[in-house]
Amino acid sequence: MLASTGVRIAKMAAVIVAVAIFNFFLVHSAPGDPALVIAGQSGATDEAFLERVRADYGLDKPLVVQLGTYLKKIVTFDLGYSHRQQRPITEVIAERLGPTLLLTGTAFVISLLGGVALGAMAGVRAGKFSDTVITILSLIVYATPVFWLGIMLVLLFSVQLGWLPPFGYQTVASGFEGWALWLDRARYLVLPAMTLGLLYLAIYARLMRASIIEVSHQDYVKTARAKGANESRVLWRHMLRNALLPVVTMAGVQAGTLVGGSVVIETVFAWPGLGRLTYEAVLQRDYQLLLGIFLVLSILVSIFNLLTDLLYRVVDPRIRAV
């Protein structure tokens, strides 16, 4: 297992380098001159100043040389300097990474636990009223645009009922510390996490339902029932673990999507995470910051895929023998 994990880590490193090279050429293929953007923010656009800006940021060198310099820097975890934020990119991303992981991690737990529970309930009651209700609600949530769902939740729970804050990360100038601070952030977390998690909850519920129905017809399930095991034991000991395999696969793939795909949610709820930072960097044409964000997201996705492979060995013991 250690040898297999080492091979996977080596492949992960190669993929990250390849993604970094691709992102470099993708960002630099965008129209416009970055030096003009930087000079425009300084209030000077004469040619002499532009040449000095290009020299300071290495923009006057060939693209291949710029790529080599960029790769050397990321090996030492130097992601460069954001001309818009006027701060090192590592500091900017580190500041926004925590809120993004908090949001996506909470949404992932909500979607996975809720989807597995509802899917299993629908699968063991296939064709009954509860199955129909869960299936219809899953289809409705899956077909609903995520930004519209977020706005509707804000109108209901914030505007109409006044239970939860509509946007933000925490109460401004509240002075909270310790548990009071985390409880305050939890109130702001509920709506964006529900909005982001409900979409994937619907996917996992439908996938779990189909998997439970398929597993229920397997020989080992029929044998367990023939031996006199009650339905609860059959579900927990024989059906659920095998039915989880496709859900684990899908969840592992979409865990990275949650981190990289929270741009809309963070924008709607003014959540100060990487998704919103990406949106701001695009509007401000902060190319170095975009490269840093893309690199961090690719690392996170690779880590989630590695964890999924390791979790698969726990869920399905047959893989350990391969």
Rank of each mutant, 00 (worst) to 15 (best):
residue 154 V to H: 00
residue 160 Q to S: 15
residue 171 T to M: 06
residue 238 H to N: 15
residue 203 I to S: 04
residue 209 R to C: 05
residue 234 V to T: 13
residue 208 M to T: 15
residue 172 V to F: 10
residue 249 T to A: 05
residue 189 L to Q: 02
residue 169 Y to M: 11
residue 234 V to P: 14
residue 241 R to A: 13
residue 223 T to P: 04
residue 188 Y to N: 01
residue 168 G to A: 10
residue 160 Q to F: 14
residue 189 L to T: 03
residue 170 Q to A: 13
residue 206 R to W: 07
residue 208 M to V: 12
residue 202 A to L: 02
residue 191 L to C: 04
residue 205 A to Y: 01
residue 233 R to F: 10
residue 154 V to E: 01
residue 217 H to E: 08
residue 242 N to K: 05
residue 210 A to C: 11
residue 186 A to W: 12
residue 160 Q to T: 07
residue 162 G to K: 05
residue 164 L to W: 02
residue 195 T to L: 06
residue 183 L to F: 12
residue 198 L to Q: 00
residue 199 L to V: 12
residue 225 R to A: 05
residue 223 T to C: 08
residue 202 A to Y: 00
residue 155 L to F: 13
residue 182 W to V: 15
residue 188 Y to K: 03
residue 224 A to T: 02
residue 161 L to M: 15
residue 228 G to I: 11
residue 208 M to R: 05
residue 179 W to D: 10
residue 178 G to L: 06
residue 212 I to S: 02
residue 156 L to F: 15
residue 238 H to V: 07
residue 201 L to A: 02
residue 192 P to A: 12
residue 190 V to W: 01
residue 223 T to G: 02
residue 198 L to T: 00
residue 228 G to F: 08
residue 206 R to Q: 07
residue 252 G to A: 06
residue 215 V to G: 08
residue 165 P to V: 04
residue 249 T to W: 03
residue 226 A to S: 08
residue 198 L to N: 00
residue 183 L to N: 13
residue 189 L to E: 01
residue 241 R to H: 15
residue 199 L to H: 11
residue 171 T to D: 04
residue 227 K to I: 11
residue 228 G to M: 12
residue 191 L to S: 01
residue 234 V to N: 10
residue 224 A to L: 11
residue 247 V to D: 03
residue 243 A to P: 10
residue 239 M to Y: 11
residue 229 A to W: 10
residue 227 K to P: 06
residue 187 R to Q: 15
residue 252 G to H: 10
residue 165 P to L: 10
residue 210 A to P: 01
residue 172 V to E: 08
residue 227 K to W: 08
residue 152 M to D: 01
residue 214 E to W: 01
residue 171 T to F: 07
residue 244 L to Y: 11
residue 190 V to Q: 04
residue 180 A to M: 10
residue 190 V to K: 06
residue 243 A to Q: 05
residue 152 M to L: 10
residue 197 G to P: 02
residue 213 I to W: 06
residue 198 L to K: 00
residue 203 I to G: 00
residue 210 A to Y: 04
residue 226 A to M: 05
residue 189 L to H: 01
residue 234 V to L: 13
residue 161 L to P: 00
residue 253 V to C: 05
residue 201 L to V: 02
residue 159 V to N: 07
residue 246 P to L: 09
residue 153 L to S: 00
residue 203 I to A: 04
residue 213 I to F: 06
residue 166 P to H: 10
residue 152 M to I: 15
residue 229 A to D: 09
residue 207 L to H: 04
residue 198 L to A: 08
residue 234 V to H: 13
residue 212 I to Q: 04
residue 174 S to K: 12
residue 172 V to S: 10
residue 211 S to W: 03
residue 206 R to T: 03
residue 162 G to E: 02
residue 154 V to W: 00
residue 159 V to D: 06
residue 250 M to I: 07
residue 244 L to M: 12
residue 209 R to G: 02
residue 215 V to N: 07
residue 222 K to E: 04
residue 184 D to G: 14
residue 196 L to T: 13
residue 228 G to Y: 09
residue 207 L to M: 05
residue 157 F to D: 01
residue 243 A to C: 12
residue 154 V to F: 00
